[in-house]
Design a protein around this nucleic acid. Structure first.
Lengths: 230, 230
DNA sequence: TGCTTAAAATGAATCACATTCATTCTTTTG
DNA sequence: CAAAAGAATGAATGTGATTCATTTTAAGCA
């Protein structure tokens, strides 16, 4: 018995450099599997193969551990998306790409979505932290495209970019929420198209305009016919 | 001393009928003041003037107490809004009314907003409960108006009502969220108008259509002039 | 009105966790 | 190699929800 213990004790301590990564990765697993409240520090420590106290050497609190888990996951995504954006032509297409890409991200990892959504709320009455900034990052990218579109004339300039962002972001979030809750699959392409159509052209029937145009054309034709009875 | 105690003991127990109401009302106060996590059962009991254990005679858990607080608050609102809706003409106006009214509700009580928003998440992996239904109630009302509008021809019928709902609902939610977080006042009228404009007409520039029309009219005028050189 | 029993209320005890900290191991340094 | 510094440990602490044996009140009945 003692032998075993000694053997364990003599095993070299794992490289410190990876200690944080191990903790974050374990936390991710545990949080995704059990949620934030039910995912205990005890369990995270067990999965990481370390003592509970050790976690507190690297993280202020359970919540800041959650923060890091979420941050790592989404930072990658945002960096990548921003890179892709550069090669897409026109604000319209870039906006549509942002919508589509976000939906794909949502579908990719339901567990992380739940955490992220929760996280936003827990952050409540604290200083404007990383969290805040991160949540705003997508909104910023969208707002940027909307403003570009306004400048180059492809979008109306009498709308509020931030409200338009809210509408897109909100639609994505509710779609996410519904997916997280029910687990019912989402068709990313179709949903992108729906959101885009509405944002792009609104929901009002074009009938009125079209009718007027049709009438105008009809009349013009009559006139032309009369002028030019060839 | 004994006298005092005896006197207290002899005081008639408050009518049971109101016991639940007292608890819920105390919980509302405490939760709104301190938030859900920091609002302790101990404190709620103190405010209600009863023992902690008593609360558990009426409520399963702290969370179900929160549920009841939120439910009571919003059921009133929904009932009222639904009544008002009946006297408004046209789906467009009713939809706009729903947006406006929701914004007013948000502004009315920041504390409750925070609770409701939190509540949605906590409910996570549980049975489809009251909560769910309640959250869907506003969406249902909106979807109903959108469908009506499609039928009577005032809205395009090639959009998805649920996505449009998500967009409106999402915009409201993010507005709410931003308000809850920052406390920065919102202009309900202006915000309503912005959301409505975008939903109604989209963000695309009407320039193309307008230009064609203008050209058409110009040409028609020329023709007319030639026909009728007075 | 007094007696008996069921229902309600109580609050001290329990339990589940996050967080702390005195102690024990490891590594580094001189 | 010894001493000092840095890490890791896990038992102890603190907080707060939840339980439950006991006490108090209300209701039914003579």
């Amino acid at each position: 018995m003692t032998l075993t213990i000694v053997a364990l004790k003599d095993a070299p301590r794992p490289p410190k450099k990876h200690r944080v990564d191990t903790i974050v990765e374990s936390a991710r697993k545990v949080f995704c599997a059990s949620g934030f409240e039910k995912g205990s520090i005890e369990n995270i420590a067990k999965v990481a193969g370390i003592a509970e106290g050790t976690i507190y050497r690297y993280f202020e609190s359970k919540r800041s551990l959650l923060e890091e888990v979420v941050r790592r996951h989404y930072d990658l995504f945002f960096d990548d998306i921003q890179k892709s954006l550069a090669s897409i032509e026109s604000p319209s297409n870039r906006l549509r790409y942002l919508i589509h890409r976000t939906l794909l991200l949502i579908l990719e990892d339901r567990g992380m979505c739940r955490l992220r959504t929760l996280y936003r709320l827990l952050e409540n009455n604290e200083l404007p932290s990383l969290a805040r900034n991160q949540n705003l990052r997508m909104a910023d990218m969208m707002a940027h495209e909307i403003k570009s579109g306004m400048k180059d004339g492809s979008f109306r300039s009498d709308t509020s970019p931030s409200i338009v962002c809210y509408m897109i972001g909100g639609a994505l979030e509710l779609t996410e929420f519904s997916y997280v809750q029910t687990g019912t699959a989402i068709d990313a392409d179709e949903t992108t198209e729906s959101i885009w159509q509405t944002i792009h052209g609104g929901i009002s029937s074009k009938d009125a305009t079209e009718e007027s145009l049709a009438r105008l054309i009809e009349r013009l034709t009559q006139v032309t016919d009369r002028l030019d009875p060839a």
